[in-house]
């Protein structure tokens, strides 16, 4: 099989994730208007990538595994994107307050 990451790597990833949790919590208290969601989701996405690549060891996995790991997010975006294609163009939502 593939090489086994060291304990040090795992602990470093854990530390990064914990720090990011604290960062996302602190940043959320600052009012940035529409950017709060962007920042929060950006950090969450980054944390997710760390978990997938290192804890789930996808970094060392075959392209096939990477493809399947990525496919889920692609389809999720299809789902959400096309939901909002309808909702956003209906003019139902309060103006300028998509989020």
């Amino acid at each position: 099989m593939h090489e086994i990451p060291s304990v040090k790597t795992y602990v470093a990833i854990w530390a990064t994730l914990t720090i990011l949790t604290f960062v996302t919590y602190s940043v959320a208290k600052i009012d940035m208007g529409g950017f709060n969601i962007v920042v929060a989701m950006g950090i969450a996405f980054f944390k997710m990538m760390l978990v997938i690549l290192f804890f789930m060891n996808v970094k060392a996995e075959s392209p096939l595994t990477k493809l399947f790991a990525g496919a889920g997010f692609f389809w999720l975006i299809l789902l959400l994107g096309q939901f909002f294609l309808d909702y956003a163009t209906r003019g139902w939502m309060p103006e300028g307050k998509m989020w």
Partner: peptide, 17 residues
Amino acid sequence: FLVWGHHMFVTGMSMYA
């Protein structure tokens, strides 16, 4: 997966969608 809206043309969907 990209075409499901064609079941909803008469539900008040905007013409862009």
